[in-house]
Design a protein around this nucleic acid. Sequence first.
DNA 1: GATCGACATGTCAACTTCGACATGTCGAAG
DNA 2: CTTCGACATGTCGAAGTTGACATGTCGATC
Lengths: 168, 168
Amino acid sequence: MSLRHAVLGLLASHPATGYELTQKFDSSLSHAWHASHSQIYPELGRLAESGFVEVVGEGARGSRTFAITDGGRAELSRWMVEVEPTRTVRNETAVRWFLLFLLPPEEQRVVLERELAHTAAEEAMLRELDTVIVEGGGSPFHPTVTLGLRTLPVMRAWLQEQLDALDG
Amino acid sequence: MSLRHAVLGLLASHPATGYELTQKFDSSLSHAWHASHSQIYPELGRLAESGFVEVVGEGARGSRTFAITDGGRAELSRWMVEVEPTRTVRNETAVRWFLLFLLPPEEQRVVLERELAHTAAEEAMLRELDTVIVEGGGSPFHPTVTLGLRTLPVMRAWLQEQLDALDG
DNA sequence: GATCGACATGTCAACTTCGACATGTCGAAG
DNA sequence: CTTCGACATGTCGAAGTTGACATGTCGATC
């Protein structure tokens, strides 16, 4: 279960409310792991019970800000360094790209154009995020943005090539 | 649920037994979707009930070979072209890379070296698969292998840079 | 003819995830 | 003063996934 350590990791970077964590799962972490608020709130409760996070403040509308504890930091390190990674992946887009060439050419074209547009949009979003981070003085997550900005053009070029091959 | 369409897609490429499909999920499809035999056999049953696949032969040890039907092919096309893709991803390795820079440098180094070794091994495996496919006269899945052979070196270079940055 | 590893299928309880429902607050704009 | 959208948390049944248990066959090697 990576959810537990993903939440712990986000809190290791900065204290946050469940709501803010949900937003981070929707934005920065969305390319690695998906989770909705209905998973995040119970998980925060379990992490608190384990002593890995604690409530450090209460704000408007009943919001509670959680922070990682020393025990939580130790657990995060232990998991990152000592626990053998689970290499299983679940990525519907990758399944679709994999199966694409079983379709008739005209259907391939429709899918390729949709994927090309989506990839270009992702790239634009990442470029914007990159600017925000650089101008904001950096972030421990910046290297991952750099990686995305290198892999997305490779994917976009590949999609374009496949599209060109349909015509050629 | 992509499992259904991943199984359907594999059968669209070639008839297969549940056992063979399990092997394909462990090898070629492993970078896109993970599933074990305990999911695949019941799914084959459900696909047969829906009329998307059918048993086309029985072999040794009670094995049954399934093939896609015309209805199955239509369903695969419908899903690929008309159903809006779910863009959610679940990738523990990506979570680990994302959280890496929250760790102390010495722990980063350990993780980076492990990931570098794993990425190099993946690359070697894909190169071998590429050779097998090219010598075997091609495959509808070959373009995806090409994509992997382009993205993996980008990732490997990135990992190496992060490692170099720890020393420099 | 015994053993062993790959082939082959199946079930099931525990756990994780999804999507809908539910409830309420706060600030801004009309 | 009402309305509306963002903020904020929570539960729960249904669906999907995992990992262990279970069972048996076939071919090759000793």
